[in-house]
């Protein structure tokens, strides 16, 4: 049986969104399932490709079950094709920060950009994070990734109370 047809998944909230003009198929936002991983790796255009299968398998095992409301891994699907994904979780008390939502991955297939898919995925993860009891969402994006940074800016995110610092380890 296709894991997408599993009974546990049937009970999961699924959003049917507006039709994309290029496909005329409805765009669904739903929990990720194991058979989505190849498409997720293909869409993920940040970092070295060869390290992605192991990375995303690890992410899926941690976030993909959909059983814990504070761990969220969603995909956007249209016409049977995965066209985007978003992942996040509730994190708490890192350097004194009260529990907040943390969005650590977001991507949309280049051919489907401009259709509002990222916004719909982000709306859904915000809805779920709110349901998990947090009122703030954070993210961290490479400063050269203008597409993703501009998207988050357009959704109202601003520089927050925490500053990212880093250095090479000798």
């Amino acid at each position: 049986m296709d894991s997408r047809e599993g009974s546990s998944l049937l009970s999961l909230p699924i959003m049917v969104l507006k039709y994309h003009m290029a496909t005329k198929d409805p765009i669904l936002i739903r929990n990720a399932v194991p058979t989505d991983l190849d498409a997720i790796i293909e869409i993920d255009d940040v970092g070295p490709k060869e390290e992605k299968p192991a990375y995303w398998r690890g992410i899926f095992s941690h976030y993909g079950s959909g059983e814990k409301k504070e761990r969220i891994f969603l995909v956007a699907e249209t016409g049977g094709e995965i066209v985007g994904f978003i992942a996040g979780e509730v994190r708490a008390w890192e350097f004194g920060s009260a529990p907040c939502g943390w969005c650590f991955a977001l991507a949309v297939s280049p051919k489907m950009r401009g259709a509002g898919i990222a916004k719909r995925m982000f709306d859904e993860i915000r809805r779920r994070l709110k349901g998990a009891g947090v009122t703030t969402v954070r993210t961290m994006v490479d400063r050269n990734n203008k597409v993703t940074l501009s998207f988050f800016r357009s959704q109202g995110l601003r520089s927050g109370r925490y500053i990212e610092l880093e250095r090479e380890i000798d």
């Binding site: 400063r143 203008k146 940074l149 501009s150 800016r153 520089s159």
Partner: peptide
């Protein structure tokens, strides 16, 4: 300066108008 530019370079006119 780099941070200032990085912030200003991610706010489109559309986003600024909406805000």
């Amino acid at each position: 300066d780099d941070l200032t530019k990085a912030i200003l370079d991610t706010i489109t006119l559309e986003t600024a108008l909406k805000s």
